[in-house]
Amino acid sequence: MDCDTNDTEALVRAVTKAFEPGCIAGVSTTSEFYLVSAAALATAVGLPAESEAAIAACRDKGELRRTLARAGVGQPAFEVVRDEAAAAAAAARIGTPCVVKPVDDSGSTRVRRCDSAAEAGALVEEIVAVRTNGRGQATAGRALVEEFLDAPEYSVEMFGLDGRQHLVGITEKTVTGAPHFVESRHIVPADLPDDVARQLEQTVRDALTATGLGRGPTHTEVKLTASGGAVVEINPRLAVA
């Protein structure tokens, strides 16, 4: 079967032509870039699927931040920006060091800690200059400037089924140093006091409720700050190494 996986309509046509109705048991992807397409394909072949709108809102990290802010879920202070000047101004307001990232990339690509407003502005200029991602898809042309949270990081793995979220486990994460903070080690299960584990779990439950995600796996990154859990991002997929 040959088709352009960046064209969801073409993907649906190719799959429904190649397979008889009822013979596909499930549709999944480990790639951030195809989560919405996988949900659309599952729906097209008559399988249960997560809401495409809910997935898209998580894929856009700026939209996710706004959703969590409306729901009062713990997260870093943030601003969505489109150019160098706006980024530098946002960094000055939020404070440095800060974190700058594209709203729609994956794998920590162009995610860095910036120690000055000028550095944040320069990185945003670099981000918005990229017109297509590694899969050849058009980029959003926007970036996030976020408060830098100097706190331990965890991921909370959940699975939604029939309107209920089930906790799979909590992972303790070790990352490399500044400025990129790439994940280098995972410890499962995280060695946490029961009350702290429940606090992280509840933060993630509140975040998932706010987004409308309710079916399938989610991998949510969260930092444990002095004031409680703070969501870094939500990935509507299985955790991958």
Rank of each mutant, 00 (worst) to 15 (best):
S155I: 07
D162W: 05
R142F: 12
A18Q: 10
A117D: 03
V36P: 04
E79D: 06
R198I: 12
Q202H: 14
T176R: 11
P97Y: 08
V204S: 11
E153V: 08
D206E: 14
A138K: 14
E20N: 11
L213C: 15
T96C: 00
G95I: 07
S106R: 09
I94C: 01
Q137G: 10
A25M: 09
F33S: 09
G163A: 06
R82G: 14
A226I: 05
V15M: 05
R59G: 07
E63G: 01
L11I: 10
A122N: 00
P152R: 08
T30M: 13
E32I: 02
S108Y: 02
L35W: 07
A151N: 11
Y34Q: 07
V204K: 10
E157A: 07
V128S: 04
S155Y: 01
D206K: 10
A230F: 05
V27T: 02
A42I: 12
E146V: 07
K223I: 08
R82V: 13
A197T: 11
N133I: 00
C23L: 12
R198W: 13
D105Y: 06
A85L: 11
G121F: 00
V73A: 08
R164A: 13
D7K: 08
T96Q: 01
V15H: 03
T109V: 13
A53M: 05
D162M: 03
A230N: 04
S116I: 04
V111F: 03
Q75L: 12
E125S: 14
V204G: 06
A40W: 01
A120G: 04
T5Q: 11
V36F: 01
T29E: 07
A38S: 11
A39H: 01
V188F: 15
I187Y: 14
A143R: 05
L238Q: 15
A129S: 15
A118I: 03
A49R: 01
G216P: 08
T43S: 14
E172Y: 02
E221V: 10
S31T: 13
A18F: 02
I24N: 03
D83F: 00
V100K: 06
A138H: 13
S155Q: 10
R59A: 02
A87E: 01
R70Y: 12
Y34C: 00
I187A: 15
